[in-house]
Write a protein that binds this DNA or RNA. Structure first.
Length: 589
RNA sequence: GGUCCCGUAGUUCAAUGGAUAGAACGGAUGUUUCCUAAACAUUAAAUGCAGGUUCGAUUCCUGCCGGGACCA
């Protein structure tokens, strides 16, 4: 239990003893004391003033005295300002904390570990990954890592949308325009190669429509009649009928795409325990639709289509099977939820999916609940906002998509230039340099996308967003490298003896002690930005400490050892925190 | 038409109903005989509008204005 929780329990306890009133510890608000007042932690009393019929002054005095008595040796004194009860924590407590903290074990304890699935990435096979996918991948990976740090068992999965009309568009364009070319021939990454044919399809389609319109056809009709469009539809039909030639081409082109994806995933550090393919799962919901009809969860309309009425839950009616018997998007998801549950039997299943699908997931969970599927209650969408450009949304048709591979490469290049201009790593081998550029470039990118509350849409400005100063990954990486550099010089073989703590030393100890609570909070709210903000604040605090107080040349051996220990703990915490974001921290930079 | 989300310094982001709304970038000014200046210190600058609830509202409620998403 951390100190904040201790204070909450003690507050509840003392109120119970003094006034016989029951209060839940969770109701007690404990904050860090505002720096302009004396104290370390503050209990906010206003909430209890009315309930207990006491003025804040009297309540504060009685409660403060009782808590000092109860937590003797821990709390040294208290003061009251309006309704704020400020407690000072003893120097010895913080010293003991610093002395006993184990840099190898900084994590929260968890008595109720869960088995949690995190599904993320979810690409289409007709286009390469873009900036939006990067946010998804980084979020998914990070939240999985944070949940692991909290002590849970995590299964990372991916669903690949590998079928449908959009894939057929790439396929027909390839047949028409490629002359049998392959990614190997053109020395192109497979996903980009296939994506280019998707673009070529759209160009050809537009040209054909324009031609038909010029020949006197209406726009609407032309859009239906364009030969390439008809070709794609025929191809989809052949695919569904299992036509061997079509399937061969489909497999061949998808394998190119997967090769490209794998390269990107490896570069950005995404991995999966299991990858599902929609081509294998898209029929799975059908059985459940039949069951739902029997259970009268669904009903059939006169035209034969199958629906569910969710108006009682504040939503609409939703179709789950078309009149021609084909399943819709949500039917597939119901089937997949069931399959995943059978395979992994998880307590919770988190889907990392953009907020444009909020409604879809609300419906999905409701339907699963009404069907009484075991997976139902565990379904949770980690909904994240769009990444927009200063000019607005990314639009592939207008060529304003920021390509994931391009962006990653650019970040690495910038980190290379920046590192070279500082000239601090002249002793690195070429391989070490290359690794360092990757670490810094990806660190900057990941941190940039993860430092914002996932729920909010964010703006990415290609010119201005790339920064290596201030609230960035490289700032924290630099702080870590700097600590490591100092520790290499001072050594880390130390013996700690009791010290009076200076304000900056104490502030660092307090900040360090918050780490487990931050991990818990990030895990509970599925919000890696909490970890990003925390690591930044810790690094900033250490940099102030560093500028103010010398470690290697401290006034006394005791001080030196104390500060070395603070350095060890800070470095370890930054390392753990950044790893939770999928970011490495270099030993030197 | 219905449902949902979002409006905070010039810009990008913070702030479980709590003390004088924090950071970063950009702007201004300083700090390098001493442990990594990708750093540190000082400084100017913001809650869309109008009501309401509350001891206290960026946060909750209502209306309006502006931006976005989804469902037909």
């Amino acid at each position: 239990m951390n100190l904040t929780n201790n204070l909450k329990h003690s507050t509840a306890n003392c109120i119970q003893q003094l006034y016989g009133v029951q209060i839940q510890p969770a109701q007690v608000l404990v904050n860090a004391t505002n720096p302009e007042f004396e104290g370390d932690y503050t209990v906010v009393l206003f909430a209890f003033v009315k309930q207990l019929g006491k003025s804040p002054e009297i309540l504060g005095n009685e409660l403060g005295a009782a808590m000092v008595a109860e937590m003797k040796g821990l709390i040294t004194q208290f003061n009251i300002v309006k309704g704020f009860l400020n407690f000072s924590i003893s120097n010895d407590f913080w010293f003991e904390y610093i002395k006993n903290a184990n840099p190898e074990n900084l994590l929260p304890s968890n008595n109720h570990p869960k088995k949690i699935m995190v599904e993320y990435s979810s690409p289409n096979t007709n286009k390469p990954l873009h900036l939006g996918h990067l946010r998804n991948n980084f979020l998914g990976w990070s939240i999985a890592e944070i949940l692991k740090l909290q002590g849970n068992e995590v299964v990372k999965t991916c669903i690949v949308n590998d079928r449908g009309i959009h894939i057929c568009k790439s396929m027909i364009a390839w047949q028409l325009f490629a002359n049998g070319a392959t990614p190997a021939d053109t020395k192109q990454k497979g996903d980009h190669f296939v994506g280019d044919y998707y673009v070529k399809y759209n160009d050809a389609y537009k040209a054909q429509v324009a031609e038909l319109v010029a020949g006197g056809m209406t726009q609407a009709l032309a859009e239906k009649e364009a030969p390439i469009q008809k070709g794609a539809q025929e191809m989809l039909l052949k695919w569904e009928q299992g036509d061997a030639e079509t399937l061969d081409l489909w497999k061949r082109m998808n394998s190119w795409v997967y090769e490209g994806f794998d390269a990107t995933y490896q570069k950005i550090g995404s991995d999966f325990v299991k990858t599902y393919y929609e081509s294998n799962t898209y029929l799975l919901g059908k059985e459940l639709v039949e069951q739902g009809l029997t259970k009268k969860v669904f009903y059939q309309k006169e035209d034969g289509s199958v629906w569910i009425d969710l108006t009682g839950d504040g939503l609409d009616e939703k179709i789950v099977r078309r009149k021609d018997g084909t399943s819709v998007y949500i039917t597939q998801d119901i089937g997949l939820a069931e399959v995943k549950q059978k395979e992994f039997n998880t307590d919770v299943s988190i889907y990392v999916v953009g907020d444009e699908q909020n409604y879809h997931f609300k419906v999905l969970k409701l339907i699963c609940q009404k069907l009484q599927l075991p997976a139902a209650d565990g379904i949770y969408q980690l909904s994240y906002g769009m990444v927009e450009l200063p000019t607005g949304k990314m639009k592939s048709r207008e060529g304003t998509v920021v390509d994931a591979d391009d962006l990653v490469d650019e970040m690495i290049n910038i980190s290379k230039e920046k590192t070279a201009s500082l000239g601090k790593v002249s002793d690195f081998t070429p391989a070490q340099l290359s690794e360092l550029y990757n670490t810094i470039g990806l660190g900057a990118l990941k941190f940039f996308l993860l430092r914002v509350d996932p729920k909010k849409k964010m703006i990415f400005n290609p010119e201005e967003s790339i920064d290596f100063h201030g609230f960035t990954g490289p700032f924290i990486q630099y702080t870590h490298a700097r600590i490591k550099s100092i520790l290499r010089k001072t050594g880390t073989d130390i013996n700690l003896s009791l010290n009076e703590l200076l304000p900056l030393e104490k502030a660092l100890a307090i900040e360090l002690s918050n780490f487990p609570a931050v991990i818990n909070e990030a895990a509970e709210t599925l919000d890696p930005s909490k970890v990003a903000i925390y690591t930044f604040n810790l690094a900033k605090l250490f940099n102030s400490f560093y500028a103010e107080l010398s470690i290697a040349n401290a006034d006394s051996e005791e001080k030196k050892n104390l500060r070395i220990q603070l350095g060890i703990l800070t470095a370890a915490t930054l390392h753990k925190g950044m790893r939770a974001l999928g970011i490495d921290v270099p030993e030197q930079m």
